[in-house]
Design a protein around this nucleic acid. Sequence first.
DNA 1: CTATTAATGGACCAAATCGGTCCGAATTCG
DNA 2: CGAATTCGGACCGATTTGGTCCATTAATAG
Lengths: 156, 156
Amino acid sequence: MIILSKLADYGVIVATHLAAYPDRQVTAGTVATETRLPQATVAKLLKALAHAGLVTAARGAGGGYRLARSATSISVAEVVAAIDGDIGLTQCSVHVDECARTTYCPTRPHWAAINRAVGQALSAISLDAMLTPAAFVPRTFPSANPSQPDEPRFSA
Amino acid sequence: MIILSKLADYGVIVATHLAAYPDRQVTAGTVATETRLPQATVAKLLKALAHAGLVTAARGAGGGYRLARSATSISVAEVVAAIDGDIGLTQCSVHVDECARTTYCPTRPHWAAINRAVGQALSAISLDAMLTPAAFVPRTFPSANPSQPDEPRFSA
DNA sequence: CTATTAATGGACCAAATCGGTCCGAATTCG
DNA sequence: CGAATTCGGACCGATTTGGTCCATTAATAG
């Protein structure tokens, strides 16, 4: 399974690209060619980012996009949320009321905690951090089953 | 956006239900009625879990499913992986070779770390832990931007 | 030995979502 | 003032997902 949609992935690339050249007004087409991504898709992504207030848009000739805030103050989580909507682990995380078996489901309370962990992992990295070549290493979780023989793979 | 697919969510519910009654042979139909989930879907899920070796299946009259291992030694991550496949954050996480712009993409190395964080968050909780009424509280991550005014919501 | 029960594997269909394209509104420059 | 340019939003096709069903194999009961 893949957690981030292709669009969200591209969105982070685009946002990071903008972060690399702060205070430069760039058109969607320019970003597309520079990032080697399809033009129409980049345009759509920038629209979503603008709608979320992460980038500012200027129309007309000589217009374009630029980051609304500093690269250090924008997290990856915000970019993803701007494109794919708010992050929730499960269906009932997002639409709480639509789950008919809320009363029977013993698992639901536990999702909240995992959810928060994922969210914080994504919030912990700013666009600025994405630009640095060295990888950010988050603090690891304590494993509930340390001597587990075959853990599922989490490929990088 | 929703991280876990509905099927994976249901899968955890089913697996947790099995964990609640260890060493009891249950048919797919029984699990379906007891969990209030659609029968055909539960059957499909149990097939997948059996294929992954998480549950053992017995055919014929008096047959059914049961957990292959103890509830404490099966993590939520394993259940999810059994249904949705191995967990990867982005497309290129799973199919590394299919990303044509690997050389241009500065974000890719960073995904690995986030990826690992998500995976460990899911591995940290066993089916046994899912049964306990009190919520498990994972250790929180350090935030890269502590004074962030409007973080995206991570609904529970 | 036969009938019944239940998992297994597969094909199959409908619906939702995703990725992508197009045209219209707004703005700046000549 | 008008034409070029660029964002904004509606729209559409295709892949994926969620879900169902049937034929087959296997095991137990009578």
